[in-house]
Amino acid sequence: MVTNVLNYGRSGVHDWVMQRFSALVLAAYTLVMVGWLVLNGSDLTFSQWQGFMSQTWVRIFTLLAILSLAGHAWIGLWTVATDYLKKGAVRVAFLGAVAISLFVYVVWGISILWGF
């Protein structure tokens, strides 16, 4: 009935839950980062920043945030594309570009966090 080949989730509920869950992660991550910057921001040095970011919990949290961002962006942009891009080919091209970009960002993020 509904063509959802390019859909990320299995169902509307799944998408809806994913979207809310990822939004919560991103909100929490933003709070933590902004909070830390406010507390240490007046004369922040690079080594302080590196030290903060290299803690294991921050790395894991950041990875979670990156994955959430990718998931959130995929569902959101898929929705936008199915609303506004009515030509199948255009939509597939757009979503392809989105998918590749998000994949690149995720890999790049991991490489920054753990290096390889």
Partner: peptide, 9 residues
């Protein structure tokens, strides 16, 4: 109704 369009749009 449990698909990404019917309700969730």
């Amino acid at each position: 109704l449990d698909d990404p369009f019917s309700v969730f749009r």
